[in-house]
Design a protein around this nucleic acid. Structure first.
Length: 528
RNA sequence: GUCCCCAUCGUCUAGCCCGGCCUAGGACACCGGCCUUUCACGCCGGCGACAGGGGUUCGAAUCCCCUUGGGGACGCCA
């Protein structure tokens, strides 16, 4: 409408400008993170700009912690933004200005109805199972009536004057849902400015998008129904609306009958960080919740996904996050774990190592020699053990025996592999001595010791192999024994074989997964 | 209650717009087998879906209608 506004909002380039605009009222959860990811992907793909805007106009519910969580989460995921963070509250004056412009141009009007009156009407309609929509009684107040109420100091809100012409329709094209139309008659005269002078989201959000020259609004489908209202605002302000892409919501697994209690953290980004996820593994998983390239590919490098990503390939139907509470192995969607473990197994070693380092540092297992004198050994070891790990946590739990001398013995493994034959108490120290005397200590020579010793004693090699495995690692599973013994090292192997001879089956269970912490949340992930 | 969106294996999905190549493909999970010193990986195989009903058509997962189910919006929340 006004020149100032148009100038500020007019797009000066063809560059794609997208934004992630979360409200800092809770955790950054998977739904929001996926929205951020899609925005980021489009920006990267088009050489555009990705903006972070914190929509903190709900001052009662917004928290500093939540803002920090959003920063941390996006940073961890690798979804770097080019502009911002902007804070919506910084633009309040502009939003108010817009509201007044709407008023002046006749696109909006003052409504003096009180909250109480409206609430009563709403209740009334509800009890009679009627649809409630503001009846527009303040719509046609005469200038004199308005003047009178204003001079009396009667509080008022500013409502948008939605076209009531039966033929009026508001339409927009959505990249995902196609052409969307809504009759003006089905849209309420919505409030854009509160009686205390603060703007509402519907206005602030649209004005900010205009101010930030957003070209594509990619957000959750929960905003689909709001969009016609915002289109109305844009038009009334003389601004060309951005393009829209509403993405389907992610739902909870209903059948699991999740209570709010049993939920919580499993839907937050920070939880996956703590649980040992590789950030890109999470991104890859999230991306496929509602988008697919259509050719069956599922694993993408960031570059590959950027290249392949396409708004038109986003689904229209909601997806379900397949989380079943109480399943220790599948503590989150099994497919998410699949992505993580596959990345751990297949990532170029030099890309994985920094994550492993961080994990070992946190667990107190890191030694600086791992990137100096023992660098080669360390890399070989990681490469050897990573194949069967699901999360980074496994490096410090299941992998502990490779980096420390104190580790736990699995009761069942001890019973099965060390308790199998009492003769082992004799065999193991003897083998330890043989190994101790080896001139060269490598996979080949170690294997020779085992093979010839088993022949000599006329016992199955498997008996000795399994016993040794448990003796040096505490478990019954792991890499090939001879590689394992080589990497663990001669001295340690000798010590462990000797002491294992005296090991008896006793309770000493290993707990691999950290305990589930309590926390809950909503069933649906808001996408913005 | 009103308006809107959606509907393929348990889950994520391909196919749908431009009907026939679909006795519906892939992935995860699950089950079995092979490999093997264990566990994984890998490979082979199995289980498993077009929500229901009408139409249109020579032919429908694909088009139309109805029903059902799920979801969203309907706030001086975002």
């Amino acid at each position: 409408m006004t020149k100032a506004f148009m100038n500020e909002s007019k797009s000066t380039t063809d560059q794609v400008r997208v934004r992630f605009a979360p409200s800092p009222t809770g955790y950054l959860h998977l739904g929001g993170a996926r929205t951020a990811l899609y925005n980021w992907l489009l920006a990267k793909k088009t050489g555009g700009v990705f903006i972070l805007r914190i929509e903190d106009t709900d001052t009662e519910r917004s928290t500093k912690e939540s803002v920090q969580e959003i920063f941390d989460g996006l940073t961890w995921l690798g979804l770097d933004w080019n502009e911002g963070p902007y804070f919506q509250t910084d633009n309040l004056a502009k939003h108010v200005e817009a509201a007044h412009k709407l008023l002046e141009s006749g696109h909006a009007y003052r409504c003096f109805c009180t909250k109480e009156e409206l609430e009563a009407q709403r209740k009334h309609a509800e009890t009679r199972k009627m649809a409630f929509m503001y009846d527009g009684r303040c719509r046609e107040l005469t200038p004199e009536q308005i003047e009178s109420k204003v001079s009396q100091g009667t509080p008022y809100v500013i409502r948008f004057r939605v076209p009531r012409d039966p033929s009026a329709i508001v339409a927009f094209n959505d990249f995902v849902y196609g052409r969307m139309e809504k009759k003006g008659q089905d849209i309420e005269d919505f409030v854009v400015l509160r009686s205390d002078g603060r703007p509402l989201y519907i206005l602030s959000n649209a004005v900010d998008d205009a101010l930030d020259r957003i070209t594509h609004v990619i957000r959750g489908a929960d905003h689909l129904a709001n969009t016609p209202k915002q289109v109305l605002i844009y038009r009334a302000l003389g601004i060309e609306p951005p393009a829209f892409a509403h993405i389907p919501l992610t739902l909870d697994n209903k059948k699991a009958k999740l209570s709010k209690r049993s939920h919580g953290e499993v839907v937050t980004v920070s939880y996956y960080r703590r649980k040992g996820f590789l950030p890109w593994a999470l991104c890859n998983f999230m991306a496929l919740l509602g988008w697919s390239p259509g050719d069956g590919r599922e694993f993408f490098s960031p570059e590959g996904m950027i290249e392949t990503f396409d708004l038109s390939k986003i689904n229209r139907s909601n997806s379900t996050f397949n989380y079943v509470p109480g399943d220790a192995r599948n503590w989150t969607d099994p497919k998410a774990i699949h992505f993580n473990s596959t990345y751990i197994r297949t990532l170029p070693l030099h890309e994985l190592i920094p994550y492993v380092k961080q994990e070992l540092v946190e667990a107190g297992l890191w030694r600086d020699s791992f990137e100096n004198g023992d660098k080669q050994w360390f890399e070989n070891t990681i490469d050897l053990i990573r194949a069967r790990y699901l999360t980074l946590k496994d490096f410090s739990t299941r992998g502990r025996c490779y980096f420390a001398d104190e580790f736990e013995f699995d009761e069942a493994a001890v019973k099965k592999n060390l308790g199998k034959d009492p003769q082992l108490a004799e065999y193991l120290p003897e083998m330890a001595s043989l190994i101790e005397n080896l001139q060269t200590y490598d996979t080949h020579t170690i294997e020779e010791v085992f093979r010839s010793y088993s022949e000599q004693k006329n016992v199955k090699a498997g008996l000795l192999i399994n016993a040794a495995r448990t003796a040096v690692s505490g478990t019954s599973v792991g890499p090939g024994l001879f590689e394992m013994l080589e990497t663990i090292g001669k001295d340690r192997v000798v010590d462990r074989l000797k002491s294992a001879a005296h090991l008896e089956p006793r309770p000493n269970k290993i707990v691999l997964m950290p305990k589930e912490e309590p926390r809950p949340n909503k069933m649906i992930f808001d996408e913005e």
